[in-house]
Design a protein around this nucleic acid. Sequence first.
DNA 1: GTTTACCTTTACGTTAACGTCAACCTTGAG
DNA 2: CTCAAGGTTGACGTTAACGTAAAGGTAAAC
Lengths: 131, 131
Amino acid sequence: MAETTPNTYTISELAKEFNITTRAIRFYEDKGILNPSRKGQKRIYSPRDRILLKLTLRGKRIGFTLAESQKLFDMYQHGEDNKDQLETMLATLDEKDALLTQQKLDIEEMEAELQAARERCFSAIKKIDNA
Amino acid sequence: MAETTPNTYTISELAKEFNITTRAIRFYEDKGILNPSRKGQKRIYSPRDRILLKLTLRGKRIGFTLAESQKLFDMYQHGEDNKDQLETMLATLDEKDALLTQQKLDIEEMEAELQAARERCFSAIKKIDNA
DNA sequence: GTTTACCTTTACGTTAACGTCAACCTTGAG
DNA sequence: CTCAAGGTTGACGTTAACGTAAAGGTAAAC
């Protein structure tokens, strides 16, 4: 058999992998995002915990709060039977999607401006060098 | 002559246009982002103030802090002659640009997941309706 | 057996970005 | 004149997302 992916992680392994502190990881647990099991008093993280952590961090990078990520995860897991909850979730998803669309526009405009600023920079430096 | 764009704004006009509070606008002034003139004690905003405000809000939407926006504006204005400052600015711009690139990836992945979640939602609702 | 390296809980501190009064001008309308 | 609509300056309150000790358990290594 080939290498099998480990099916548990320690807190510091995850911290290292995602370049965050163990404090942050415990904090996410407080917020109900992660639910590691315990071996004695030590936390043991499953691949599922790892995925949730990854998604959470990705969410953060695009401006999701922890509460928002948690809410999405929560709906994703427990909303299979309740129609109202499913529809709330759909609304939330649409709302988030609209935000992402706006963000993409913002990013493109911002990139254009950064590029313009960069060019201004270059020519200003050239001017100095040729002085 | 056709309609000319107004060249001054009151604080509440800007607040209404951008759907923020006057408190926020004054806060941005505290942070050195805006520099309205005064008529008596009242603030008068120029088109330039308005643009800076707009850029600031756009920056916020993609995760720039006020300090970061302020720093960019500041460099943009006072860095024309200092080579070191120009190079610092270039580095900052590159850094920001890398972040934006990552953000675009994050957004696309997140959109894919939202779409998947949406489809799960739909079929779950259908199931309920057909039960 | 005692460092050393991680792990734990508890709890107060911190920063950003405003919100929310309070207490006070001012100015055009009636 | 007065009063309602907006504007002003403090200044304290709030939320999110951790940072930063403090004080201790535990287990493999020497």
